[in-house]
């Protein structure tokens, strides 16, 4: 249904015009997207457990027509990691849904696009974080984190309860796998891939 790099999105609204507008906006973002349009709560109820969508864009009016049961499954399926965007949301009506971002249909295209981009960006990065970059092992990643934070081989050995010799072997393997030789280079790699945060570096 979807290929690895694209983000699958469900667009749920009763009005075809509104769905068309959202689909057109989604295609203007710089992300590769596959879309399923849904026009009725019944249809959403049928697909919600099967569809692999990473993001649900749903309007307030659509939500209002959903049964309590469906609202609950929307909540359990899309709540986590802000995987939901509400069009014209009125939070007081849906306190049970934990949405962090709302699109208003009165907003101009630029702002809407920005909100979509932001959300899609977060989702695409979560995806990247779940797969270990470049096949370095968990242990190598531990070592890499500490190297990037400026610890010496001896300090790393003490922290991980391994010998300095083993640390050196790990470091050789990391360099061979990543093609990065210097500490400054490894630090930059770790920061770009969010293995550490800037506050963790020594300088």
């Amino acid at each position: 249904m979807t290929d690895m790099d694209s983000i699958h999105v469900i667009v749920a609204d009763m009005s075809q015009l509104v769905r068309l507008g959202l689909v057109s906006l989604l295609h203007q973002t710089r992300y590769r997207i596959t879309i399923r349009e849904i026009g009725t709560p019944e249809k959403l109820g049928q697909v919600i457990s099967k569809d692999q969508a990473k993001l649900l864009i749903i309007s307030r009016s659509f939500l209002n027509s959903c049964t309590n049961l469906l609202t609950a499954s929307i909540k359990s399926r899309f709540r986590a990691d802000s995987r939901i965007l509400i069009l014209d949301a009125d939070q007081s009506l849906h306190p049970e849904i934990d949405f962090t971002e709302i699109i208003e249909r009165t907003e101009n295209e630029k702002i809407m696009l920005k909100k979509l981009e932001k959300r899609l960006h977060a989702l695409s990065e979560n995806g990247a974080e779940n797969t270990p970059p470049d096949d370095i092992s968990d242990r190598e990643r531990d070592v890499l984190r500490l190297v990037a934070q400026g610890f010496t081989n001896k300090e790393i050995a003490d922290r991980l309860f391994i010998s300095s010799h083993t640390v050196i072997t790990h470091r050789k393997n990391i360099t061979a796998k990543l093609g990065i030789k210097t500490i400054a280079g490894l630090t930059m790699y770790a920061l770009i891939n969010r293995l550490i945060i800037p506050e963790e570096t020594k300088q």
Binding site: I180, K181, Y189
Partner: peptide, 17 residues
């Protein structure tokens, strides 16, 4: 060291940016 850092920078742009 100066040579290696330049090499790393290139590789990071090529492979990981």
């Amino acid at each position: 060291n100066v040579e290696d850092e330049l090499y790393d920078l290139k590789n990071i742009i090529i492979k990981y940016l």
